[in-house]
Every structure is written in structure tokens, then in C-alpha cells.
């Protein structure tokens, strides 16, 4: 039983890590209807930049983080200026393909700027097993995962306040609701897009820090986007809580399947199990668990 709880808990924690990536997707999809495939590469790029600032320029951690945030905001501005502005009113699939192109550009750029070798990222997040959990409940949990969960919770609270209480947040929600109506009451779409891409760039930075501390900053970091996709369709493209809860369901399902089902079929289930799980959910709720109900008119 302890083992089961341990597996479930570590699944939950891993799920939170997926949610961190999925959050960035949801933000952009809500505000601009763009399915941003480059989110994973953005996390990689942010982490690479952070490590680059710390190692090559010898910046202290706080300065490096501020610097990286500035880079991500600049990146968002460039993306809006060069790419999105010219793709207004295109079909979703065209926008999606453009973000895949963007992913290639960022991947190449990150490698050219900072080199493609594996880097260690250490910004002082506690590592190793949590002694307190081990002593009290006899359960093994990584400190990093608890830290990630706490960060995700903070992030979601911040985002919720940002979306609900601030002026910009209201504008963002208006844009998400209806582009044209938002334009007609004087909201600038271009500004909103820069803001939303900046915010999801910062979310990508957080995801990049967490994943980078866990497994080093390297190319495979960008593949976590593929991990976040089933989380997205499970939770619904437009729902922030959906991204969190979807991530947890996927995380737990994946870990349980790996432990209890893996030995029978030869392991390495984690590549596709999440997708099958999400697919099974979708057959009952085609818009995801928390997605907006799809209303179709002729």
C-alpha cells in the first residue's frame, strides 16, 4: 500500500511538471487561438539562456533570471512583429505550422548562441529525497518535485489574480472571448499578443528551470512539449485548471501504468500511454474535461 501511495504521489508530482508546460499552451491558445507547438522549445531556449547568463557572464542567479525574462519578452515582441502580425485571420492549421517553423528557428538559435552540449542548471533548488516525508510516512519523494508543485501552485494563483483582477487580464479575457468585439472596444490586439506571449515565455522559463534542474539542460528538454499535448487535450485547450488537473491525471496514470502494466508488455509505456489515456477520455468528452463546450452551427 505504501508503494502504491508512493507511486501515486510521484505521479502527481511528475504531472505537475507536465502542467507547467501545458499552462503556456493554454495561455496562448486562449488569447489568440494559436496552438503554439514551440512552447517546449521556448522552455529549452529560456533554460539555455539562463544557464548561459550564469555560466558565461557570471551573473548572480537573480540577475540572470531577470535577464532571461527580459530576453523572453523581447522574443515575444519579435515573434509578434515578424510572424503573428502577418498571419492574422489565417486558418488555424497555417498558424500551427508557423509555430512549428518557429520551434525550428528557436532550436537552431539556442544551439548557435549557447552550444548544444548538456548543461547543468543549479539555482539552489533543494535536491534529493525529502527526509521529513521519509521519516514520518516512510514515503520517498524528491524535494525538487515538492518544490515544483509549490511553484506551480503559486504560478496558477498569480495567473488567476492577473487574469481576474487586473486591467490587462480583463483585456486578455475579452480577446479570448471575441477578437472583433475586443477590437471594437479599443483593445489593441498586437499589444495583447505581445503580453500573452511574454507571459507564456515566463511560464516556459519556470518550466525550463524545473525540468533543467531535474535532468540537465539539453535538446531533449524541448520534447516535453510532446508530453504536454495529451495533458492539453485531456484538460481542454482553453482551461487553466484543466491543464493542472489534466497533468495530474496523466502523471498518475502514466506512473501506475509503468509500474503495474509495464512488466507485462516490455516497458517504455510512457511514450504513448498518456496519449491513449487522453484519447479514451476524449471519446466521452470531445472538448476535454474542462474545455468550453463546442457549439456548432450550420
Amino acid at each position: 500500500m505504501t508503494f502504491f501511495i508512493e507511486v501515486t504521489l510521484s505521479g502527481l508530482m511528475a504531472g505537475v511538471m507536465y502542467s507547467l508546460v501545458a499552462l503556456g499552451f493554454v495561455l496562448i491558445f486562449k488569447a489568440s487561438g494559436i496552438f503554439n507547438f514551440a512552447q517546449g522549445v521556448m522552455a529549452l531556449f529560456a533554460a539555455l539562456t539562463l544557464v548561459g547568463f550564469m555560466d558565461e557572464f557570471g551573473m548572480p542567479i537573480w540577475l540572470a533570471i531577470i535577464g532571461t525574462i527580459a530576453v523572453m519578452i523581447a522574443l515575444a515582441w519579435v515573434i509578434e512583429r515578424v510572424m503573428l502580425r502577418h498571419l492574422v485571420n489565417q486558418e488555424p492549421i497555417i498558424l500551427f505550422m508557423a509555430t512549428i517553423g518557429l520551434a525550428y528557428v528557436l532550436e537552431g538559435l539556442g544551439d548557435i548562441l549557447w552550444g548544444s552540449d548538456v548543461k547543468m542548471l543549479d539555482i539552489g533548488i533543494p535536491q534529493g529525497a525529502s527526509d521529513w516525508m521519509l521519516d514520518t510516512f516512510d514515503i520517498y519523494i524528491e524535494k525538487l518535485e515538492i518544490f515544483a508543485a509549490a511553484t506551480a501552485a503559486t504560478l496558477v494563483i498569480f495567473l488567476a489574480i492577473f487574469f481576474q483582477k487586473t486591467r490587462i487580464g480583463r483585456a486578455l479575457r475579452a480577446v479570448a472571448d471575441d477578437h472583433q468585439a475586443a477590437l471594437s472596444v479599443g483593445i489593441s490586439l498586437h499589444t495583447i499578443w505581445v503580453i500573452v506571449w511574454s507571459v507564456s515565455g515566463i511560464v516556459a522559463l519556470v518550466a525550463g528551470i524545473m525540468w533543467g534542474s531535474k535532468s540537465g539542460v539539453q535538446f531533449s528538454l524541448s520534447l516535453i512539449a510532446l508530453k504536454a499535448l495529451p495533458v492539453l487535450i485531456l484538460g481542454g485547450f482553453t482551461s487553466v485548471p484543466g491543464a493542472i488537473i489534466g497533468g495530474m491525471i496523466i502523471g498518475v496514470g502514466e506512473k501506475l501504468a509503468e509500474v503495474y502494466l509495464g512488466p507485462f508488455v516490455g516497458g517504455a509505456l510512457e511514450n504513448w500511454f498518456a496519449y491513449m489515456l487522453a484519447l479514451a477520455f476524449l471519446l466521452f468528452r470531445p472538448q476535454g474535461l474542462f474545455g468550453e463546450r463546442i457549439i456548432e452551427r450550420v
Binding site: 505550422m97 525550428y104 528557428v105
Partner: peptide, 15 residues
């Protein structure tokens, strides 16, 4: 690296 970057950029320009 330059190749993958250029391919990506060309795709965006094309779209």
C-alpha cells in the same frame, strides 16, 4: 544548426 534555423525561417516566410 544554421540549416534547421533557415528551414524554420523559410517555412514561416512561406506561410
Amino acid at each position: 544548426h544554421i540549416e534547421i534555423m533557415t528551414v524554420g525561417a523559410l517555412i514561416i516566410i512561406f506561410l
